[in-house]
């Protein structure tokens, strides 16, 4: 079985310079924050994702409050949202120390307000409440988030749809197209072409989509037998050799 976390621990797209930063003590050098921030914006433009590199930015912010840049933090959180059901979002928030708003700033810090919105979005994704996610996401209250942030984040909505597809693939063998449409926030021709792209079959008479078989939606009952490992027997064997 291939490691599920290899790409997360070290994405194949990660440049060597970043790898050295992430794995060495250079990650603590605040002079490197620019390199990591540039890399974040590169991720945003090219639909890549590197959680550990982004956590390194937050780490530098944690130690050097002067470096703090709310836009960067929000972008990191947006990227982390799309890795649900993995807990990346929470891991990022863990690194945000609680700080009262600094009254000396020229502009108000947009993060505190957006953080609660993003947390709500994350919760909905985590609970697989996809229709609720979309209605919150498209609500008027989130206009600023959409206009200022997610619009820059290439493929944000599609990566949310990837989360939906992961959950649906695991849970369903067949699913009504209306239901799937509500999860994906797609309907009509968009939905049909999205399903076509996935290579899934839509039965037009019943409007039911067949989800291709995969290890998660092929269930079978098994009886697990125990395996005795040699270390369990060391005491007994050692004793035998002693007495012989």
């Amino acid at each position: 079985m291939a490691s599920a976390t290899a790409a997360w621990v070290c994405p194949p797209t990660r440049p060597e310079q970043i790898e050295n930063l992430v794995s060495g003590v250079d990650r603590y050098n605040p002079n490197n924050v620019g390199i990591l921030e540039d890399y974040l914006y590169h991720q945003i433009r090219s639909e890549e994702y590197d959680c550990l590199a982004n956590l390194a930015i937050l780490k530098l912010y944690q130690f050097n409050p002067d470096l703090y840049n709310p836009d960067v933090v929000i972008n990191i959180l947006l990227k982390a949202l799309t890795s649900s059901p993995f807990p990346d979002f929470n891991l990022c928030v863990s690194l945000l120390d609680d700080r009262p708003p600094n009254p000396n700033l020229d502009e108000p810090d947009p993060l505190p307000e957006l953080l609660s919105t993003l947390t709500a979005l994350n919760t909905l994704l985590h609970q697989c409440r996809f229709p609720a996610f979309w209605s919150l996401y498209y609500s008027d209250d989130l206009q600023t988030l959409r206009d200022n942030y997610t619009v820059e984040c290439v493929g944000f909505e599609d990566s949310v749809r990837d989360i939906v597809i992961r959950a649906v693939k695991a849970t369903f063998t067949r699913i009504g197209s209306k239901r799937l449409g509500s999860y994906l926030s797609l309907d009509g021709g968009d939905l049909v072409s999205y399903i076509d792209n996935l290579g899934w079959q839509l039965d037009s008479s019943t409007a039911v989509i067949a989800v291709p078989p995969n290890p998660d939606n092929q269930i079978s009952s098994t009886v697990i037998q125990e395996n005795i490992k040699l270390p369990q027997l060391t005491k007994i064997i050692a004793h035998e050799t002693l007495t012989v």
Binding site: A4, T5, P85, F86, H126, Q127, C128, R129, F130, P131, R166, A167, V168, A170, T171, R179, D216
Partner: peptide, 14 residues
């Protein structure tokens, strides 16, 4: 049904 999806995802772990 959405809760069941969450449950299914929760039953998978690294």
């Amino acid at each position: 049904v959405q809760g069941m999806m969450a449950m299914k995802m929760g039953c998978r772990s690294v």
